[in-house]
Write a protein that binds this DNA or RNA. Structure first.
Ligand SMILES: NC(=O)c1ccc[n+]([C@@H]2O[C@H](COP(=O)([O-])OP(=O)(O)OC[C@H]3O[C@@H](n4cnc5c(N)ncnc54)[C@H](O)[C@@H]3O)[C@@H](O)[C@H]2O)c1
Ligand SMILES: NC(=O)c1ccc[n+]([C@@H]2O[C@H](COP(=O)([O-])OP(=O)(O)OC[C@H]3O[C@@H](n4cnc5c(N)ncnc54)[C@H](O)[C@@H]3O)[C@@H](O)[C@H]2O)c1
Lengths: 237, 237
DNA sequence: AGGCATTTGTGAAGACTTGCACAAATCGCG
DNA sequence: CGCGATTTGTGCAAGTCTTCACAAATGCCT
């Protein structure tokens, strides 16, 4: 059993044929760079400077250059980065060249919104199956896809080659669902339920908790109202 | 204009009557401790050790103790922390003793789910108003509350004392909405649209991007499949 | 061809965060 | 009352991340 949150930031690779060490903080920013690059490409830019891309991604340009330097040297001094080439490189590193199949579990309020969201498909993910424990929900069509019962999960995950599971069930069901997903062969989980999940080594978990985000904002609101006239800057995530 | 992401981690207070410096990393964990404490309280626990709370919150116990030490000393050596007292303290620090009014903008797929979500109210937030630019949506009842048009935003934010805005519009509308929210007097924004927002100093922005979360998981999936037999631990957020 | 403006890639310094290890404090019990 | 078991609070060291500052590389212009 491993607990939430990482302690080792460096993503080791050894001397194998794989990719070089990539700091976790860098990995977390690459998707943001990628999004900004797609916008630039759509706007017709062929190249972009670190300054321009950094602004578009909302980061410091030195940080951006250091991040990109970890992928190798794909910029041209005096010119900048080739937008198309850099997109290609980042997608390669993030493993987005192959579409990943995702299972969505818990088709309630949030699950419906996620199932209907087009933004996943356009960024390399394919929602391959919807699951719920409620027999009344099974069979319902959401965005053209039928909701299946949890009892099918092992077979479907195997058949569809699903590697990522998204949990959108109530918190008290999340651990059971996580166990089911892991047993079915899922090795990455995105958890929307407000709870800590225990999973075996080798399984990655990321958590999104909206109430936590609001509470962090609340802290800064509180601070702003308590202490007058402080130059409160934008809060990092 | 300030850009996304913070650089200064220490949350300054000067020597004023307010709270001591609180590292940003600590602030981000306090809500998690709070949730775990509420669970413990519901389960009938009066006190909890740093080890027990750390496990429930998914963190290292030394880190938890250091975090709590920043709030002052509210534990008892040899015993642990008083659950009720600690809840009280953390809520105080996070500014949750007063309910905060929230405006939700963009009542589409995601907006509907957020509007119907009960978890906000139970954690100190009150969704005070729903806004959309689509005249066909205005007037629609969601969870017993009518959707209002964007043109009302200034008046409603002032009337309801709204300090936090949640943006759930498409990305290309998000900056305009942010500008409207700020102009209306909102000083904290939670942004679900996949884009960087520019806001004046004094306004805090936090971003939630589901595609980014999936892409980070994708990176680790890619790494796991490329490099064999590595003890990949759980990924921190 | 040479010089100049531009921009990358990176060494080094500094800031922040984590985790260990242990002294100090507290409680329960004999 | 004193002692041992327990658990907090924290100094310190190690690790990670950010930022500055500048040499090196590149392209453009004359
Ligand atoms: N709705 C939101 O905007 C929102 C926001 C933040 C967090 N969340 C969190 O997301 C989760 C889902 O929220 P929601 O509003 O969609 O809740 P919901 O009650 O509308 O939906 C939960 C769904 O999970 C299904 N479910 C329950 N137990 C299950 C199990 N063991 N296996 C499979 N499916 C099961 C239920 O049948 C239901 O369809 C909750 O944990 C909530 O705290 C929701
Ligand atoms: N649905 C999801 O699960 C999901 C997941 C991740 C991210 N997102 C992001 O959240 C945002 C909303 O997603 P969605 O699926 O709900 O989209 P949607 O199209 O269903 O809803 C968007 C809503 O915003 C309204 N709107 C448009 N322009 C506006 C303006 N200027 N002012 C006020 N309202 C305006 C529209 O009328 C519509 O009701 C998008 O940016 C999307 O990328 C959604």
């Amino acid at each position: 059993m491993s607990q939430q949150r990482a302690q080792s930031s460096g993503v080791a690779s050894g001397g194998g044929p794989g990719f070089p060490d990539l700091p976790e903080a860098t990995v977390a920013r690459l998707p943001e760079y990628l999004r900004a690059l797609h916008n630039l490409a759509d706007a017709g830019h062929d190249t972009v400077s670190s300054e321009g891309l950094a602004t578009a991604a909302g980061v410091n340009s030195a940080k951006l250059r250091k991040d990109l330097s970890h992928l190798g040297s794909y910029g041209t001094r005096g010119v900048g980065y080739d937008v198309t080439l850099l997109i290609e490189q980042i997608e390669q590193v993030l493993g987005l060249h192959e579409t990943r199949a995702v299972a969505l579990v818990g088709i309630g309020n949030l699950g419906h919104a996620l199932a209907r969201y087009a933004g996943f498909a356009s960024r390399g993910f394919h929602i391959a199956a919807l699951f719920d424990a409620d027999r009344d929900r099974v069979g319902e069509l959401v965005n053209g896809m039928a909701v299946r019962h949890m009892s099918d999960i092992a077979a479907v995950v195997a058949d569809e080659g699903i590697s990522i599971g998204v949990i959108a069930t109530p918190a008290d069901a999340a651990q059971v669902v996580a166990d089911d997903l892991v047993a079915a062969g899922v090795t990455s989980i995105l958890n929307f339920a407000p709870c800590v999940l225990a999973v075996p080594d080798g399984v990655d978990v990321r958590k999104v908790d909206l109430a936590i985000e609001l509470q962090i904002l609340s802290f800064h609101e509180h601070r702003k109202s308590t202490l007058t006239a402080l130059p409160a800057k934008v809060v990092g995530q």
